[in-house]
Simulated assay, not measured.
Amino acid sequence: MCGRYSLSKSKIELEERFQAEMLTDFKPRYNIAPTQLVPVVTSQSPKGFSFFYWGITPEFGRNKPVSQKLINAKAESVHQKMTFKSSFKQRRCIIPADGFYEWKKLGKKTSIPHRFTLREGGLFSFAGIWDEYETVDGENQHTFLILTTEPNELVSEVHDRMPVVLTPETEKKWLNNYSSEEELLEILKPFSANEMLSYPVSTLVNSVKNDSPALIRKTDPMDQHGNYTLFG
């Protein structure tokens, strides 16, 4: 799954990379978590950023606790699941990012967070779908989730799933309302491990309350658990 990511770039960098206008201020984020309001670009409005909440509430879960929101969906079956079929066809989006986190389990109680980025450290995006529904207060709320796929060789060392990472070329296809189902499914593949980097980061990322540049810095294993052999 993908449960945390970073977007540590400026508003100007986002607008230049995605060729979309952002009509509100944006502060770099280092620890984006589910339920938070973050920028996305939709197939309906590809020239502007929208701000949606991370976590779709399915029909059967309306008015249920936040914990029951869906933050990921499997790319392999998103076009078949009744919960997602409509969004897959009509409500696709890309989620800007410059890194994502996964936790490597080392025993029953120990997990080491790792950050994954592009090799050159630039911006990319995740493939996503979005939805809209009316809350009990009559408010229209827009939400999204991130599609995941089988891990590449790099991510598989840490986790058994990874988000679908898009390039500028595949972003255009994903946001194109005229792309066929076959074209869309072809996009939803593991990103090349040769074009990515991974490194351990501070366990401060474990808490959603922490959101600072320190979270994306490479952390020596000794700084985390006092044991250099953890990464040997």
Results as ranks from 00 to 15, higher is better:
Arg17Met: 10
Gln68Pro: 00
Gly61Asn: 10
Arg119Gln: 13
Phe144Arg: 00
Arg115Phe: 04
Tyr30Pro: 00
Glu182His: 10
Leu184Tyr: 04
Arg4Gln: 06
Val164Cys: 06
Leu70Pro: 00
Phe51Glu: 02
His79Leu: 05
Asn206Pro: 01
Leu184Ile: 01
Thr117Arg: 01
Thr24Gly: 07
Lys69Tyr: 13
Ile112Arg: 12
Tyr30Ile: 01
Val201Ser: 08
Phe116Gln: 03
Ser43Cys: 12
Thr83Ser: 12
Ser67Ala: 11
Asn227Gly: 08
Gly232Cys: 08
Val155Thr: 05
Leu197Lys: 15
Glu13Cys: 11
Leu14Ser: 09
Tyr53Phe: 12
Thr170Trp: 08
Lys189Ile: 08
Lys9Ile: 00
Phe126Ile: 01
Ala75Asn: 07
Ser86Cys: 03
Leu7Trp: 02
Ser10Asn: 03
Thr35Pro: 03
Glu139Ser: 10
Leu37Met: 14
Thr143Cys: 09
Glu134Asp: 03
Trp54Arg: 11
Ala73Ser: 10
Pro151Gln: 12
Arg29Gly: 03
Gly107Tyr: 12
Gly128Val: 06
Gly48Trp: 07
Glu171Met: 06
Pro34Thr: 02
Gly232Lys: 11
Met82Trp: 09
Leu23Phe: 11
Lys11Ala: 09
Gln80Lys: 11
Gly138Tyr: 13
Gly3Lys: 07
Val165Ser: 01
Val201Asp: 08
Lys64Phe: 11
Glu171Trp: 03
Tyr199Ile: 01
Ser202Thr: 09
Pro151Trp: 15
Val40Ala: 13
Arg161Lys: 13
Val165Asp: 00
Tyr133Ser: 13
Met162Ser: 06
Phe124His: 00
Pro34Ala: 10
Ala73Trp: 12
Glu183Ser: 08
Leu154Tyr: 14
Asp223Cys: 07
His142Cys: 09
Glu76Arg: 09
